[in-house]
């Protein structure tokens, strides 16, 4: 459904993707300016390019934008039909969310390729171990942001998977990071489920 909607209204999706991409590219160019002017910059030129290339893709996947659509659905009573469906409402919006992300990725990848061909950074040596940890950590991040949105718990939603991919964390710290992610996820999962079932008991709409 979401993929169909995205293909149907291409201009909209293109603008949505560009707005997500504009800010990181601006930040990257500022940091590149700093890296060129200062020896004490936190990362090297290549380091910043690698970081923001990974950021563009990871940020797209750990972003969740459904909450602004749920609120009017509750207010206007459009939620009622979904409650009659045999699957949980969360599953429906999770599917929509993933569908849109798949489509947006096809737009973001060419942008990453363009950035790569302009700056030609070194490609860091990424082991299969790093990639598998990255994939696992990214999946946890997607689940966390889906449940709570983008604000909490800062580092474990966006920065941590990128750090793993670029090899900036190692050994014990990977284990600590993953444990933190799982803990956050479990805590929020319980909290949101409780809130949702309490909320549904209070929910009323005409005809419901």
């Amino acid at each position: 459904m979401a993929v169909l909607d995205a293909v149907e209204y291409r201009t909209d999706i293109l603008i949505f993707v560009l707005s997500g991409v504009a800010q990181p590219i601006i930040l990257m160019s500022i940091w590149l300016g700093i890296a060129a002017a200062s020896k004490s910059a936190p990362m090297s030129h290549d380091g910043f390019v690698q970081y923001y290339m990974a950021y563009l893709v990871v940020n797209l996947w750990v972003n969740a934008w459904h909450s602004i659509f749920i609120i009017p659905k509750i207010r206007l009573g459009d939620l009622s039909p979904y409650l009659l469906h045999p699957i949980h409402y969360f599953t429906v919006i999770f599917g929509e969310n993933i569908g849109e992300k798949i489509f947006k990725t096809t737009v973001v990848i060419p942008i990453v390729v363009v950035i790569f061909s302009i700056f030609r950074p070194d490609i860091p040596n990424v082991s299969w171990f790093q990639i598998s940890i990255f994939a696992f950590s990214l999946a946890l991040s997607i689940a966390i942001t889906f449940i709570v949105g983008v604000f909490l718990p800062f580092r474990y939603t966006l920065s941590f998977p990128i750090e793993v991919l670029l090899g900036q964390v190692s050994g014990q710290n990977i284990a600590i990071g993953l444990t933190m992610q799982i803990l956050w996820l479990t805590a929020f999962f319980i909290l949101v489920n409780t809130l949702w079932s309490c909320g549904l008991k209070r929910y009323s709409a005409s005809g419901a």
Binding site: Y9, D12, I15, F16, L18
Partner: peptide, 13 residues
């Protein structure tokens, strides 16, 4: 285009 709902994102860019 008749439908253009991404106006706020355009403003953000």
């Amino acid at each position: 285009t008749v439908r253009l709902s991404a106006t706020k994102s355009l403003y953000d860019i």
